[in-house]
Write a protein that binds this DNA or RNA. Structure first.
Length: 152
DNA sequence: GCCAACGTTGGC
DNA sequence: GCCAACGTTGGC
């Protein structure tokens, strides 16, 4: 099983929204590196849910990959901000997964706390200028994150 | 609201 | 294929 980190602005979609909805299609990713990580996900993988552009930013919960290899429907919707006129049904450009709510952390693991416990080498999130919204988390790092959560 | 960092676009 | 211009991300 692999671990991932998914970024979302809570004003757009939060861990509370996921808890209410139970599952969601992780659509709207329009970056090739992030898309490739989405493609590499497998059913059963766990993903840390990260809130960005909020105070404080941080990991706020956990979700699980339920379905993989899904075509992102928003690329075909002219009314969607994620519409991509270069995509076609025969040759879709953007792929995604469905994730399900697992848990919301009692205390968020803030970006500040993550910086104190991990190096930028260990956690892509912490790398200078990082803007990836979907990224892998090494097993050993995921274990330490989970341990931090437990000790809060 | 600022701005550094980065990805994408498009002229050449 | 280069690279300047531009738009976006996201922490602060």
């Amino acid at each position: 099983m692999n671990h991932w980190l998914l970024k979302s602005e809570p004003a757009v979609f939060s861990i509370d929204d996921l808890e209410k909805q139970k599952t969601t299609l992780w659509d709207g990713v329009r970056n090739y590196q992030a898309r490739n990580f989405l493609k590499a996900m497998q059913v059963g993988d766990l993903a840390f849910f990260y809130h960005s552009s909020t105070e404080p930013p941080g990991i706020v919960g956990l979700c699980r990959v339920l379905e993989t290899g899904l075509v992102d429907p928003s690329q075909f919707d002219p009314n969607s901000p994620y519409f991509d006129p270069r995509s076609s049904a025969e040759n879709p450009r953007w792929w995604t997964v469905r994730v399900g709510f697992v848990e919301k952390f009692k205390c968020p693991l803030t970006l500040d706390l993550l910086r104190k416990n991990f190096s930028p080498d260990e956690l892509i999130l912490l790398r200078r200028g990082n803007r990836l919204s979907v990224m892998p988390v090494a097993a050993e790092v995921a274990e330490r994150i989970t341990a931090m959560r437990a000790s809060q």
